[in-house]
Nucleic acid binder design. Structure first.
Lengths: 129, 129
DNA sequence: ATCTTACTACGAGGATCGTCGTATGTCAAC
DNA sequence: GTTGACATACGACGATCCTCGTAGTAAGAT
């Protein structure tokens, strides 16, 4: 059993993980095309990045096909939990309230989003009571 | 007028900013002693770091005294807003709900903290209605 | 068979990060 | 005026990040 955590992803790595999470297991080409649609970048740059990520344990690679299939080693929620916990401890003194204040003040929140947040609190309280 | 944003602070820079925010304007010695109490580090390491931070615009430096006085260039809340907005966009698809889920799942939240979060939502809704 | 296309492997380079050692300056106390 | 304590300045080093070019390989099309 692996209790080994992959390291915190860097900015570029997180961008790639985001694609993998939404696309599911896929090829370098696919990831590159997605990223290149928003930002100019070379195919081999993405390739190299993903090779390094495989070494770090951030992604898994299936080499059965000629075009290797990559997938995120950890589910989105798992990594989000790590990142949230990390930033919470390092920048917000562990205060979830401060973090939420920062998030809300960084952009407008819709009425619906606020309702979702309330629902989340309800749910959390129910689950842990 | 400066609309110039200082860059996102690195991990080491954030640690120093945290000290400056809680201590207020102070010397390198003071910052170093605070950090060295938790983690072994050399005085000149902290000094160099803070010099670089001054160049980047992350801190302000008053050189009137022999021991320069440093202070954070931006208040804690301002930087927290940047960091929250940044992580929100890069790792959480802009979803405050996901961010909150990550934060809550990363460690236990007390009943009081949950109440604070509710109060924060109330307050936010009131202010923006 | 050769050509073309698509893929991986890999080295390398420039930038930034975090660290520290050393040089140098200042000031007070002896 | 020499010494010692304490401050800044600064260069340099190893590690990591991000980028890309080039080489090599596999497979299908002509």
């Amino acid at each position: 059993m692996s209790t080994e955590h992959p390291p915190r992803p860097t900015d570029a790595e997180l961008e790639i993980l985001t694609v993998l999470w939404s696309r599911g297991p896929t090829t370098v080409r696919d990831v590159h095309e997605t990223i290149a649609a928003r930002r100019p970048t070379q195919y081999t740059t993405v390739l190299k990045q993903m090779q390094v990520m495989a070494e770090k344990g951030l992604v898994l690679r299936n080499e059965d096909q000629r075009a290797h299939i990559y997938e995120a080693a950890r589910p989105r929620e798992w990594t989000q939990k790590q990142l949230a916990g990390d930033i919470l401890a390092r920048a917000f003194n562990g205060s979830a309230k401060s973090l939420m204040m920062g998030a809300l003040s960084s952009r407008k929140a819709s009425k619906q989003e606020l309702a979702e947040l309330r629902a989340l609190l309800d749910e959390y309280e129910k689950r842990t009571r």
